Structure formats: C-alpha cells, structure tokens
Amino acid sequence: MLVDSHCHLNFEQLSSQLDDVVRRAELAGVGHMLTIGTKLREFEAVRSIAETYSNIHCSVGIHPHEAEVEGADVTVEKLVSLADHPRVVGIGETGLDYFYEHAPRDVQKRSFRIHIEAARKTGLPLIVHTRNADQDTIDILTEEYKKGPFKGLIHCFSSGWEVAEKSMEIGFSISISGIVTFKAADELRDHVRRIPLDRLLVETDSPYLAPVPNRGKTNEPSFVAHTAARVADLKDVSADEVAEVTTRNFFTLFDKIRRED
C-alpha cells in the first residue's frame, strides 16, 4: 500500500471528479490520502471530504500565500479548536514562501509560529511548506523547538540540504513529491539518496507537479506511485519496500489515524 501524504482534493481540478480520483488511487495501490487545509474559509469543504471517504483524513491550516488575507482569523486557539475532530490529523500547511511573496515576510513568520504552537498544543504533526526561505525556516523551527518539542515534516521537499539536515535533527520527516522525477532535479535526487528511508514520505501535492511520465497533466493521488518508484530507484531498493516503509512512516507520524481506517 502507498499513501499520498499531501494532496488538495478540494481544489476544483480534483473535486469535480472526486469519486473517480479516489477510485483511480485505490486501483493504483494508494490506500490512504491526506487532503490539506490551506485556507480557514475553505476548511469545511476539506473536512467534508475526509468525512465522506474512510481512507482520507485532513489537516487544518493557512498556506503562507494566504497569511495576509486570513491573518486576522488565525489564532492558536482557533486552530486547536478546529483540530479537535476525528478526521483532522495535522496542522498546516504553513511555513514560508519567499518565491512568490504573496504575503509580507513578517506576516508569514507570525502565522508560521502560531501554527507551530498549535501543533505543540495538539500533539499533531506540523506540515511545513518552505520555498526560497531556507535560513528563516531553519531558524524558526530551531528556535521554536527549544521552547518545547513538536513533530512534523517538510512537505514537497526541494530545498537545500541544510533544511533536511536541521529538520531531521529535531525529528522531522521529509516528504518527496513528483519533482524528484523532473529532468532538472539532480540536486534533489542527490538529497534523496542521503535521506534515510525511515524519514521519507511520498506525496503528490496534487493537482500540481505531476510526475514523469504524466508531466503536463492534472496531478492526482494515483500518480504517487511514479514518485515512489523513482525514490526506490534512487535508494536502490524495491518499490514494495518503499511502499511499505513510507506507509509505516506516515502512520507513525500521523498517529491520530488508526491504521485500520
């Protein structure tokens, strides 16, 4: 069994054909999916998907792109309250994005720290988005961890090695997306070779970043099998072993989910 540890099933490209998307995932051996919250105003739609399908859970959070628009609404207490639901198993996605900078950096940092405190209070994993913000991401995670432990992962990892190294030092996992199959992703492939298999998860980040051989198509959870196969090749192990270990890693990290779910 494979797990797509990060997808956006409420986005129109997938929600408009959700039954078929879920069916194709199951046929591809994807036994579980985590659909991710990016806006509080859309959280009910995200949670509804997780309530509808037994093999889907969800997270609650505000993407850094939305930090300014939804900044007045995000508090630790609100996140903790929304996370108090059996289908909500993670906090985020949150973090820093200095590539697009749709929100001011100070606003992104404030939101990031609020999500970290919510993860600390709930005990749920923190789902971190970081792009072109390596040092600030490292600094905030390190500073906050000294205040009290929390668990989490770097999603859609494509950063420098230091982000992987420092996040693993505080116990984080690293999630690999279809980027690892892209022609220009040699540096990422080198990093994947170095990351211990017991720290890896796989994801689609669908509907974006469709892996080879589906580049240019709308990404969906069934395509995570291609990412897992590339990881297996890089780690010189079988695809079955990658499926087994990354699935175990997922359920170990997201331990609010009962494996039989």
Rank of each mutant, 00 (worst) to 15 (best):
T38R: 04
K39E: 14
L40E: 14
R41L: 15
E42R: 12
E42L: 14
F43N: 03
S48A: 15
I49A: 00
I49F: 00
A50G: 08
A50V: 04
E51A: 01
T52D: 00
Y53A: 00
Y53Q: 00
N55L: 14
I56S: 02
H57T: 10
C58V: 11
G61M: 08
I62T: 15
I62S: 06
A67L: 02
A67M: 01
A67D: 06
E68N: 06
E68V: 01
E68F: 06
E70T: 10
A72F: 09
D73W: 15
D73E: 13
V74I: 13
V76T: 15
K78T: 01
S81P: 02
S81I: 02
S81K: 07
H85G: 09
P86H: 13
R87E: 03
R87S: 08
V88R: 10
V88N: 06
I91A: 02
G92S: 06
E93Q: 02
G95P: 07
G95K: 09
L96S: 07
D97G: 04
Y98I: 07
Y100E: 11
Y100F: 15
Y100L: 11
E101F: 13
H102T: 13
P104N: 07
R105G: 08
D106N: 15
D106C: 13
D106K: 14
Q108S: 03
Q108T: 04
K109P: 08
K109F: 10
K109R: 14
R110K: 09
S111E: 14
F112A: 07
F112V: 06
H115G: 02
I116Y: 05
I116R: 05
E117W: 07
A119P: 06
K121D: 13
T122I: 12
P125R: 01
P125K: 00
P125W: 00
L126N: 04
V128Y: 08
H129W: 10
R131L: 15
N132S: 09
A133S: 03
Q135R: 06
D136M: 03
D136L: 12
I138L: 11
D139C: 10
L141D: 12
T142F: 11
E144I: 10
E144R: 12
Y145M: 11
K146G: 12
K147R: 06
G148Y: 06
G148F: 08
P149A: 08
P149W: 07
K151Q: 10
G152A: 03
H155A: 01
C156R: 05
F157M: 04
F157P: 05
S158W: 03
S158V: 11
W161M: 12
A164D: 14
K166V: 07
S167Y: 07
S167K: 02
S167V: 03
I170Y: 00
G171E: 06
G171C: 02
F172Y: 04
F172A: 01
